[in-house]
Simulated assay, not measured.
Amino acid sequence: MKLKLLAFVPVVLFTVNTVSIANASIVSVGVFDENVVQANSVDISATAYTAGQVSVDVASAFAAGQGGVIDFDNGTITDSNRLEATFAGGTKTLHVRNDERTWSIGNLGTGTAGALSGGRVLFNGAPDPFPTPYLNRFVFEDVTDQLGMSTGDAVTTFGLIVLDLNTSLNGGDNDLEFTITFSDDSTMSLMHTVPGSFNANDTFFGYQAPSGQSIKEVAISATNNLATDDWAFIVSPSAIPEPGSVAMLALLGMVTVMRRRSR
């Protein structure tokens, strides 16, 4: 009788580690400048793109998985120079780096005082010594999926609220200069003074990239204590060449190769 040999094939189980919402620093929400928990609200829009406009736009983007509002009430910062915010139900993460300062999340309370949403805000620094200007530089790195791979999205709309200050803090007024750098390295700047009045001059600054571009970084120079709330962002897929453009590039490549061979 012949014996049949049975071959045992080992089965290897692969485990995919995904990034869950619980491991992320901040969880984005869909409402800009909410007024249920926090009665305080935006007083002024310093830019042509207003707080009212971004409220509508970011709500639509959030529903479509293409944006959100970072209100600093849902999570923490694990790296004082970096902020990571999940959106699209936790399937995407926006990575923002500060090349100039360290950040911290703090509690300013609810009701009519302090924050614009919930009770917590982002503290962006203070002049040392007053009123020496100091810089924050928000660099939008990339958007990744649950596996940490780039989604190909880039920030095309960004806005935030700069809180005014109690006049007893360093004399009050805060002279700000915003410089926005787009993906083609073009820039736009704005100078604006936020008076020290405590809850009467909370100011919104919002920017949209030109068609076909994205926002590369936002630099803010300030002369007084700086606290921000409700970062609104919208992302769009990075520009992809049209099929005709791809075909033309391929044809040019073939012509170049043929010319080199003929020589």
Score class of each variant (00 low, 15 high):
residue 9 V to A: 10
residue 139 V to L: 14
residue 235 V to W: 00
residue 139 V to E: 11
residue 170 N to D: 14
residue 263 R to I: 02
residue 165 L to N: 13
residue 110 T to R: 12
residue 89 G to C: 09
residue 130 F to K: 09
residue 115 A to P: 06
residue 10 P to G: 08
residue 199 N to F: 13
residue 57 D to T: 09
residue 181 T to Y: 04
residue 150 S to F: 00
residue 22 A to P: 00
residue 18 T to I: 14
residue 17 N to P: 01
residue 42 V to S: 02
residue 82 R to A: 04
residue 62 F to E: 06
residue 31 V to P: 00
residue 205 F to T: 00
residue 83 L to F: 03
residue 26 I to V: 10
residue 180 I to C: 12
residue 78 T to F: 09
residue 233 F to W: 09
residue 235 V to S: 00
residue 97 R to C: 01
residue 254 M to F: 07
residue 136 N to H: 04
residue 84 E to C: 03
residue 61 A to I: 08
residue 97 R to M: 06
residue 161 I to S: 08
residue 173 D to M: 03
residue 248 M to K: 11
residue 240 I to K: 14
residue 157 T to W: 02
residue 38 Q to M: 02
residue 111 G to E: 05
residue 86 T to Q: 11
residue 179 T to G: 01
residue 262 S to Y: 09
residue 77 I to M: 12
residue 53 Q to C: 08
residue 181 T to L: 04
residue 4 K to E: 14
residue 144 T to Q: 05
residue 79 D to G: 05
residue 254 M to W: 04
residue 229 D to R: 05
residue 182 F to V: 11
residue 58 V to Q: 10
residue 160 L to A: 07
residue 156 T to S: 12
residue 13 L to G: 05
residue 96 V to W: 08
residue 114 G to L: 03
residue 216 K to D: 10
residue 42 V to H: 06
residue 51 A to L: 00
residue 251 L to S: 14
residue 13 L to A: 11
residue 173 D to K: 08
residue 189 S to M: 10
residue 251 L to H: 11
residue 129 P to K: 08
residue 150 S to C: 00
residue 177 E to M: 14
residue 162 V to T: 08
residue 84 E to D: 08
residue 244 G to D: 15
residue 219 A to L: 08
residue 31 V to H: 06
residue 114 G to D: 02
residue 102 T to W: 01
residue 65 G to L: 11
residue 30 G to H: 03
residue 170 N to Y: 15
residue 59 A to R: 14
residue 255 V to L: 15
residue 11 V to G: 01
residue 199 N to P: 03
residue 151 T to D: 07
residue 201 N to I: 07
residue 154 A to K: 13
residue 176 L to E: 09
residue 255 V to F: 13
residue 40 N to W: 01
residue 70 I to Q: 13
residue 8 F to D: 05
residue 75 G to A: 04
residue 131 P to G: 11
residue 240 I to G: 03
residue 214 S to A: 10
residue 184 D to Q: 11
residue 239 A to Q: 01
residue 201 N to W: 10
residue 52 G to Q: 05
residue 177 E to V: 14
residue 136 N to R: 01
residue 190 L to D: 10
residue 191 M to L: 10
residue 70 I to G: 11
residue 201 N to T: 14
residue 103 W to L: 08
residue 183 S to K: 11
residue 74 N to T: 09
residue 135 L to Q: 11
residue 236 S to L: 06
residue 146 Q to R: 14
residue 92 K to R: 15
residue 139 V to P: 05
residue 74 N to W: 09
residue 138 F to D: 06
residue 171 G to E: 07
residue 169 L to H: 13
residue 198 F to R: 13
residue 5 L to T: 09
residue 173 D to R: 02
residue 258 M to G: 12
residue 89 G to V: 09
residue 238 S to A: 12
residue 53 Q to G: 14
residue 145 D to M: 04
residue 235 V to F: 05
residue 164 D to W: 07
residue 211 S to K: 12
residue 135 L to E: 09
residue 86 T to K: 07
residue 167 T to A: 15
residue 34 E to S: 12
residue 215 I to T: 02
residue 128 D to V: 07
residue 147 L to K: 03
residue 131 P to W: 04
residue 243 P to C: 11
residue 113 A to G: 02
residue 127 P to E: 10
residue 190 L to Y: 15
residue 257 V to N: 00
residue 114 G to C: 07
residue 79 D to L: 09
residue 186 S to E: 11
residue 184 D to C: 10
residue 234 I to E: 10
residue 68 G to E: 12
residue 83 L to A: 14
residue 170 N to H: 15
